[in-house]
Simulated scan of single mutants.
Amino acid sequence: MSDPVVLTDCCLAPTVSASSASYAQKETLAFEGGVIVFVGEEASLPRDYAQAPRRSVEGRVVTPGLIDCHTHLVYAGSRAREFEMRLTGASYEEIMRAGGGIFSTVEATRAAGEDELLESALSRLDRLMAGGVTTVEVKSGYGLDIETELRMLRVARALEVHRKVTVRTTFLGAHAFPKDMTADDYLTHICLPALDQAANEGLVDAVDGFCETVGFSRKQIGRVFDRAKALDLPVKLHAEQMSDQKGAMLAANHRALSADHLEYLCADGVAAMAEAGTVAVLLPGAFYALGETQLPPIQTLRDAGVPMALATDCNPGSSPTTSLLLIMNMGAVLFGLTPQECLKGVTVNAARALGLKDRGTFEVGMRADIAIWDVTDPAELTYRMGDAPLKQRVFGGELC
């Protein structure tokens, strides 16, 4: 149990209230035993904490620790040459023929041992943490065989052993399927058995899939979701990134934690997500890197009250970034989100997208995961294009 700490002169950035101008500049925040025990004016601080050490943050912005709720952090290899080919007009088919695309990452990841995967993932994680991240989701999906999918998940689990961060693991065996197999055969002989084994080893917190014309059909994803339900695991889905396959409706019907990407999301899908409480995870990094033009239906999601989260989608093919702050800026500039929506998207709504109810807001009883920024206006975090300086992280009440 950590000793009590009192932070004074905080500019607490709001993650619940609707107004971006409603932040408090002289608030006091106290935490003990890894949880928040007081939020308010210093004059109202309970007597129990009168003698606790005080640290003035001198009017700096204080937010809940940031949450990156969609990453592919564990992988090997690089696809920089593929990026160069795209810039010169190469089609996806041409890139695939040249050895690029997801299968180049699969090949490199299969060839990498756990130590190599861990080292590279820790490097990416360190950059996320330097940007205020205290919780991160990590997917499998670059193995497409049982051995490598499990290896990726073991590495993801190991990250929080080596760093002060919470890691949520997601099984994404239904990411793609090998060239020499049909999708259904892959599900039957590799994906679903890998999921069973991963669940038996305690390696999985949630189950994901890629519902798209170049991925898996609704019926095939339904098989994955049914197995997840049998294993008592929550689900989420890559949906409507390239076309409207009604994946978000499928996800909502299974009470999914989130549906992610959503550029081609239809009104019926929005309504289904609103009814189910499914979070819309927006991924502007992939939108930007792939030069997409179809925007997610932001206003329709707003009007329906669907919570919107933001995430890096850190991956080698379509979003090679480890800056959640840059994603906040992209969410504002490319998608038209307000700075307040961007902040909620990487705190309270991101927590909801991971099924976590103990973080993301400044409330008594919540985890003391906190980021202190060397800025004095919360809008700076979105405005500064990824370079808002982090003064200090607090993880579970421990000053890092």
Results as ranks from 00 to 15, higher is better:
F171T: 02
A98V: 10
A350Y: 01
Q299W: 11
Q197P: 00
L237C: 08
Y186P: 08
A388W: 06
H175R: 10
G59I: 08
R81H: 10
G99P: 12
Q340C: 08
P234L: 11
R367W: 04
A230H: 08
G336A: 09
A24W: 11
L122N: 07
I190W: 00
V270C: 08
M330E: 09
G77P: 08
E94I: 09
L301E: 09
E107N: 11
L282M: 14
A76K: 06
V62E: 05
N349R: 06
K236G: 02
E119F: 00
S17A: 15
D232F: 07
Y186Q: 07
R352W: 01
L334C: 06
T8W: 05
D260L: 03
G360T: 08
E201M: 15
T338N: 05
G396T: 01
E114M: 08
Q25A: 15
E147M: 03
L118V: 04
G65N: 11
V214C: 12
A24P: 00
F177P: 04
M330L: 15
E94K: 13
V138Y: 03
L45Y: 06
D196G: 11
F177T: 01
A206T: 13
M85S: 03
A108Y: 00
S19M: 01
E32I: 01
V214M: 14
G65Q: 11
V16P: 01
A52C: 04
D9A: 12
E341I: 01
L283D: 05
R60P: 00
A13R: 07
G131V: 02
D377V: 09
K236V: 04
F171H: 06
D369G: 03
R151G: 02
P389S: 12
D180H: 13
C69K: 05
M385L: 13
Q340V: 07
V136H: 09
A206E: 08
R367E: 13
L172F: 10
L282A: 13
P307W: 10
V346K: 03
R218K: 12
A108G: 04
G291K: 08
A286S: 15
C342F: 03
L301S: 07
E201I: 10
D115M: 05
K344R: 15
I190Q: 10
A309W: 05
D185V: 05
F177Q: 03
T322V: 14
L172V: 11
T312S: 14
M181G: 05
V364H: 05
V375F: 00
G331L: 02
S44R: 15
A30R: 02
A252Y: 03
T8L: 05
R154Y: 08
A98E: 14
D226Q: 13
K219Y: 00
L325Y: 02
F395L: 06
L324T: 01
T347I: 07
I190D: 05
R97P: 00
K179W: 07
A280I: 03
